[in-house]
Amino acid sequence: MKLYYSDVLSPRKACAVAAHLDAPVEYVYLDLARGEHKTPDYLKLNPNGKVPTLVDGERTLWEADAIMCELSRRAGADLWPDDAERQIEILRWLSWDKQHFGRTCGELYFEHIVKRRFADAPPAPDKVERAMKHFHAHAAVLDAHLSERTWLVGERLSVADFAVAVALPYAQSMQLPLDAFPAVQRWNARLETLDAWQHPFPQRNETPSATA
């Protein structure tokens, strides 16, 4: 299997799951600043021109959440369980993340990190203010859910945890007020004990153009 990635937000969760499972993947780094995700050859694999993409023989899979589930399925792991009830719960949190928490975190990641890294531009205060209001609302929902739980779904780690928490390692750079959400803080701290969460990307000989 080949996993095409770059060291930005969405591929981080797929790479973290691959590392956590010690999946037999060959990592292929794409330099976004050089437009390597927009080349004709790559667009044949992923017509969206996005990362990550998983290529397994004749099969090509894009979208990080689907890739996480496939890696877990291939490994026979419980991150994407066989139990249909847990699957539905995981899908609920993946959907919620796409529409709410992850969407808002993505806006703040773009303003504080992507713009600086790729355009040397400052964040837009009005966009940060709007996104931060949404962050407080969505983080409150997450904090309440996690107040008496170890992980998002049941008492076992799942792909939902990798997905929903993907921006939290950048909390300081994104100026996220995690102190206001103690259950989210505790959950994030548990994830930080995982080596794959701390170091999701494979080592590369090249030095990235910037650090996010």
Rank of each mutant, 00 (worst) to 15 (best):
L3Q: 00
Y5N: 08
D7Y: 07
D7C: 00
L9R: 09
P11I: 01
R12C: 02
A14P: 01
A18V: 13
A19Y: 04
D22F: 09
A23K: 07
V25S: 00
Y27W: 08
V28I: 09
Y29F: 08
Y29G: 04
L30V: 07
D31S: 06
E36F: 00
H37Q: 08
T39W: 14
T39Y: 15
K44H: 05
N46A: 05
P47L: 00
N48M: 13
G49P: 02
G49C: 03
K50N: 01
V51W: 05
L54G: 15
D56S: 01
R59L: 05
L61N: 10
L61C: 00
E63Q: 13
A64R: 07
D65S: 05
D65L: 01
D65R: 02
A66Y: 14
I67H: 09
I67D: 02
C69L: 12
E70I: 03
E70D: 12
L71E: 10
S72H: 02
A77D: 09
A77P: 03
A77M: 05
D78P: 00
D83R: 07
Q87H: 07
Q87T: 09
Q87S: 13
Q87I: 01
I88M: 12
I88A: 15
E89W: 06
I90R: 07
I90M: 06
I90S: 10
L91Y: 12
R92K: 13
R92W: 03
W93F: 09
W93E: 10
S95T: 12
S95W: 02
K98G: 12
K98L: 13
Q99A: 08
H100P: 05
F101K: 04
G102K: 00
R103E: 11
T104S: 06
T104R: 15
G106R: 11
G106Y: 12
E107Y: 11
L108K: 06
Y109M: 03
E111W: 06
E111Q: 12
H112M: 03
I113V: 05
V114W: 15
V114M: 08
K115V: 10
K115Q: 08
R116F: 04
R116I: 08
R117A: 14
R117G: 14
F118R: 08
F118Y: 15
A121C: 15
P123E: 13
A124E: 13
P125C: 09
K127T: 02
K127D: 08
E129Y: 14
R130Q: 15
M132A: 11
K133S: 15
H134Q: 09
H134P: 12
A137K: 14
A140M: 08
A140L: 06
V141P: 13
D143M: 11
S147P: 09
S147E: 07
W151N: 00
L152A: 05
L152G: 02
R156T: 09
L157S: 09
L157F: 04
S158P: 01
F162H: 04
A163W: 02
V164P: 06
V164F: 14
Y170M: 02
M174T: 03
M174K: 06
P177D: 08
L178P: 01
D179F: 04
F181Y: 15
F181G: 10
F181D: 11
W187Y: 11
N188G: 10
N188A: 12
A189W: 05
E192Y: 10
T193A: 13
L194V: 07
L194P: 05
D195P: 04
D195L: 06
Q198S: 02
Q198H: 03
P200N: 10
Q203G: 15
E206D: 13
T211W: 15
A212H: 11
